[in-house]
Design a protein around this nucleic acid. Structure first.
Lengths: 306, 306
DNA sequence: ATGCTTTACGTCTAGCGTAATGATT
DNA sequence: AATCATTACGCTAGACGTAAAGCAT
């Protein structure tokens, strides 16, 4: 039994597909199929119950996969202790980040890490859609909002409320609303993160929480929403953290400043069970630094412009 | 990296020799040497520092070996949970036992286990010399007396004092001693277990502990000592546990019954760190049963013949 | 009908034994 | 001188890709 074969089994189990596992491992489906068959024969145990349409671990398969996972992790840990700083970082790291974060600041941080480590490769998945970390072999992800998947290990990076913003040009043409009720007269820029668009904003203000029903012609991802706001297309609700650059540069102005949506945490997420290798930790450190710096600027902005 | 390669590294480390490891693994020294070299190159780390005369793990090698050990054990555990009772026991088990125990009762127990499991092979090392469990790849050993090597895992089987015995024929010719002092007039059968012969008996009796200096013409291992006693060649000191058959059959008679040497424990010993596989546990169970049954007979004998 | 797993076959390389070489006590 | 690790070389078997076939939705 080889460690590569164990990782292969884990990939098949995580993705639930030999073909997808093959893609991720840079192998052909035939090779994966043959490997699984070979392993099962050597064990005398069926690891996966499969039709042409699905691949599921058997009861014994779960035992085997647990063992493989523990073993692969132990080996990675050993390798790092032994090779430590000697070996320069290499390999490929898959990072998932919301589009707006990726374009604004994660991208730059990632480039800096790659520049420092020539053998390191990165695939930055910029999408607001929630990636399944296990399924897609994502090594780390940045996620806004509450954590739900308990099989993931998350570390909170920072936490900020959503605020309403518009460009100065837009506000010249459309006087800023003075109460939440006046928002209906404005063009709201809304988000469609997953399949269904978000059609309401919950705003907390001096008079408690208010729910605003929206009828918005402009609906896109976080990056589009911010750019539409910059272009004066309407009022967007964004995390303060995402628009701090624009607020500092006065490209965007806060609207209804006494109202804000609930503080939402931003997490760095890892596929829990797996050991986090040094190459991933390098990106983690760099991105965390960027978040720290941005969070400081958010603090200062909040203090200066209450 | 393959699990077989990890086991190879462990064998080399335990034996301290590529040639010995090769023998135990049914490989040639060339293959072992090549494997070590190949592994070291793939790790980018030197695992063993070696001359033609010695093989020692480097600092990094210790880390690697620790990892390999944990991994091999985890995998064996996984295999057993998965294959459980399905697979019949197979493979070879190396058992070390003192000569007298091996010939008298361990041998029979071992045969019974092999009869029940046709694919199981056993090598019974019958020797009073202490085998190095790690070095010689012994799976389990029976050892009389106190445990010293703390790197081994031991389980106490039973505990009995040494007593003095002689055959009825001998006692007809030489009247039994009535006090320890009278022993000097008898022929004592002594042991040579390791390199130096044992030249004194420490006997505890009604008047406290007595040390008897011996000048014995007959000196051999535990099996020889018992047989010489049976043949009427003199008085031997044996663990009650070893001579219970002969006492019950009245082939041997206890001498100076109010005197006995310190109770000594008999342990079942395993190479601690390693996982104990099912095939070894099968022998453990069978041999433990034999010990239990013999210990009961010792109890009864002690009760009936104080 | 599409997309998945499986089978068949040719190719290549990793890993073994044999045998010779070099080093150490 | 004897023993051990290493190197060189030929060989075998395992593992991959290509291509085709078989199934399930």
């Amino acid at each position: 039994m080889k460690l590569d074969e164990m990782q292969l089994l884990l990939r098949v189990a995580d993705t639930g597909s030999m073909t997808v596992a093959a893609r991720q491992l840079h192998l052909t489906p035939a090779a994966v199929s043959a490997a699984v068959k070979r392993i099962e024969e050597s064990l005398g145990v069926r690891v996966f119950e499969r039709t042409t349409r699905s691949v599921h671990p058997t009861d014994e398969g779960v035992e085997v996969l647990d063992g493989c996972e523990a073993i692969v992790e132990r080996w990675q840990r050993t390798l790092e202790r032994v090779q430590g700083g000697r070996r320069e970082l290499e390999g490929t790291v898959h990072i998932s980040a919301p589009a707006d974060s990726a374009y604004q600041f994660v991208g730059a941080a990632v480039v800096a890490v790659c520049d420092a480590h020539p053998k390191l490769r990165v695939v930055l998945h910029s999408s607001d859609a929630l990636h399944h970390l296990h399924r897609d072999a994502i090594d780390m992800a940045i996620r806004y909002g509450p954590m739900q998947d308990s099989t993931l290990a998350a570390r909170k990076l920072t936490e900020w409320p959503g605020i309403l913003v518009a460009s100065p040009s837009y506000l010249e043409r459309h006087p800023a609303p003075r109460t939440p009720d006046e928002l209906v007269a404005h063009r709201a820029i809304t988000l469609q993160l997953s399949s269904t668009p978000i059609s309401e904003w919950i705003l907390e203000g001096p008079s408690g929480a208010r729910t605003i029903d929206l009828e918005s012609p402009l609906c896109g991802d976080g990056f589009l929403a911010r750019h539409w706001a910059l272009e004066g297309k309407g009022i967007a609700r964004k995390s303060l953290f995402d628009v701090i650059d624009d607020l500092e540069a006065k490209r965007l102005v806060r609207v209804l400043p006494e109202y804000a949506s609930e503080r939402a945490a931003i997490h760095m997420v890892f596929p829990s069970r797996r050991f986090v290798p040094a190459r991933v930790r390098a990106f983690d450190a760099a991105i965390s630094d960027v978040f720290k710096e941005r969070a400081d600027r958010c603090e200062r902005w909040m203090a200066s412009a209450p």
